[in-house]
């Protein structure tokens, strides 16, 4: 109970603020309740299947095997695998950095690692389905369509613009991390 209160302290504060807001500014009551209801409806409808998908991806995607085929010079196949590895992920972008360090350790090529980071940041499959439901298929599909070449171009641009010695330094650094 104590644990729950501590964990939801901020939520309780926000809820209190919301009630206070409704009382102090009654003019906004209808609209505030309408908007919170609109958002809650999307969330309650869309979140359960999205998280089921996230859990299933986490359990079924064979990460170790995929990394083996992502070495430098693995070409289109390695890039595609890196893209899917990132897209099957769960969690915010900053959770991808430690995973990227592991990929470096295991010998994935640098362009592939950058593709992995790009995919993790913006083309995660469960998030795409969520976006599709919340913002419409035109929005979600057009964003996905331009993101795929964009991720590859950004990865290639970084690889070209950063000197080889810097990349070697990053690999050596990743080797020392655990």
């Amino acid at each position: 109970m104590k644990f729950l209160v501590r964990r939801y302290r901020a939520v309780l504060a926000a809820a209190g603020l919301f009630v206070l807001f409704l009382f102090v500014l009654p003019g906004y009551q209808t609209k505030a309740i309408e908007i919170i209801g609109f958002q809650a409806k999307i969330i309650l409808l869309v979140i359960p299947p999205t998280f089921v998908l996230l859990g299933l991806l986490d359990v079924w995607v064979p990460r170790e095997q995929m990394i083996r085929f992502m070495g430098p010079g693995s070409g289109l196949k390695g890039g595609t695998l890196a893209f899917f590895l990132g897209s099957f992920a769960a969690g915010p972008l900053y959770a991808a950095f430690p995973v990227a360090a592991i990929l470096m350790k295991k010998g994935a090529g640098f362009t592939n690692i950058l593709i992995f980071i790009g995919a993790w940041s913006t083309t995660k499959i469960p998030m795409f389905l969520f976006e599709n439901a919340a913002l419409g298929s035109r929005f979600a599909f057009s964003r996905l369509a331009i993101d795929i070449p964009g991720i590859v171009l950004i990865a290639m641009a970084i690889k070209t613009l950063v000197p080889e010695t810097e990349i070697e330094r990053l690999y050596a650094k990743a080797e020392k991390m655990n």
Binding site: A13, F18, I35
Partner: peptide, 29 residues
């Protein structure tokens, strides 16, 4: 295992999620 992970992940984002939901609703109102 997958369903357990799904529920855990959901539970983890729930608190910050509800806070932003409330704040966004106030701002949008």
């Amino acid at each position: 295992t997958a369903l357990k992970k799904a529920f855990k992940a959901f539970e983890a984002i729930l608190p910050p999620f509800l806070v932003v939901l409330v704040l966004v609703s106030i701002v949008l109102a």
